[in-house]
Design a protein around this nucleic acid. Structure first.
Lengths: 231, 231
DNA sequence: CAAGATAATATGTGCAGACATAATAACCAT
DNA sequence: ATGGTTATTATGTCTGCACATATTATCTTG
């Protein structure tokens, strides 16, 4: 006994029909009630399976119009953005970090603009080098809005990295994230032990609480870093 | 009348409690039955709301242990990987492409290895430059396994880009995707009209049907490209 | 024939109830 | 205490049903 037909089975069978070419890109697939009859399960079960496949970008659904196989198969990729500590430790190395900078100063204009800070307003600037064993792993360059996170001013970032401190002290919030490539500046290169001008993979993240920017962070990875995921 | 309590409302309210700090990172939140009683809805509704929040990485759930607020808030980002044509057109420009190469040849060893091809085995090599209006946008460098997609050999990639041809002719399938940064080679630089050595944002994608590699594609974007998403 | 009203329909969502499953907590015997 | 067995419990999932909603199709009507 046990599982009759679970929504997982439905997902597998639908995916199989798509991958076998029985339901090619763009094809209209049977309605939920028909699939429910065919597989001998409730419509709700079919609904959940198709809904999840649609969320993954494999199907496209519209009321009344029906469900069709997506024309653009690989539309969505879900990346895990790991805590740096965990990412390093999962590679088998020991994570260490070194505090390079921790002071109030005036951020560059483009960062102030993105954070919505008035020009000339100072913010807390924290630079941390993360290392895997003794090799540089990535450089974290963070600006913290003192108005939005006043407790940060008295935190000891030498003991706990700024990344982890924020996770533990600032509630979950909204924001944007960007992935890009940048040539290493001379300073970046020296810190990361890379050639000047080397291509660095960079993640920039802006975090907000209720419209107000809390922190802007730029993480530049060592040359050769790849961020990967399945499809 | 209208909506009493939808799972969307529940999601909003739960998110609100998390963002307001009422439920800090790591906190155990009430059980589904309690929330259902509090919000006056069915447990299934609570379940769907919490399940989706967990899928987004905001909550972590374990049977019997209960549901708690994730310690690492921004754990997952879902990127849309657009068709290049659509991406260009959404920026308001006209998409054009130019076929640079289309011939059978022996792929570099690292690509042959990743595709699981025997050394010295030839594959179809298609290079396409995508343009936004008349400016270079990205360079698509694709290898197609002739065994897995024999119809590709006779396709006319000058008319339809290889990207779009594959989408329309190959069923949806599994694979891996990687994001990285690379310095532009002299050839890249000339084609993309960039400085040699410029940092390029690169997406590499390997697509498989039933274990067998169908195509490997490397897309190198013009300097300055950012791939962005909300959190 | 075109514009607007109306019916038909596929998916979207909610509910109540039942059982499955994993993991913890409690208990018991050695 | 210690190890193993047995409740207990929170989430996971399925069912059957009802109604909501967005679109398309059809049927009016000027």
């Amino acid at each position: 006994m046990s599982r009759l037909t679970s929504y997982r089975d439905i997902k597998k069978m639908v995916l199989d029909r798509i991958q076998s070419g029985a339901w090619p890109p763009g094809a209209l697939i049977p309605r939920e009630t028909e699939l429910a009859a065919e597989f001998g399960c409730a419509r709700a079960t079919i609904n959940r399976a198709l809904r999840e496949l649609a969320q993954a970008g494999v199907l496209e659904r519209r009321r009344k119009a029906g469900t069709r196989v997506s024309m653009t198969p690989v539309r969505k990729a879900t990346l895990d953005i790991p805590l740096i500590r965990r990412e390093v430790e999962e590679s088998g190395a020991t994570h260490r970090h070194r505090l390079l900078t921790c002071e109030m100063s005036v951020p560059p204009a483009h960062i102030a603009a993105r954070m919505g800070l008035p020009l000339e307003r100072t913010a807390l600037h924290v630079q941390t080098l993360h290392m895997a064993d003794s090799a540089p792993y990535c450089l974290e360059d963070r600006w913290i809005n003192p108005k939005a996170a006043p407790e940060a001013l008295s935190a000891d970032f030498a003991a706990l990295s700024a990344n982890e401190w924020l996770v533990q002290n600032i509630p979950i919030s909204a924001g944007e994230i960007a992935f890009l490539a940048e040539n290493a500046s001379d300073a970046d290169a020296e810190i990361l032990n890379a050639a000047p001008g080397a291509a660095l993979f960079v993640v920039e993240r802006l975090t907000r609480i209720a419209q107000e920017a809390v922190t802007h962070v730029r993480i530049a990875y060592r040359p050769g870093y790849r961020m990967t995921t399945g499809i």
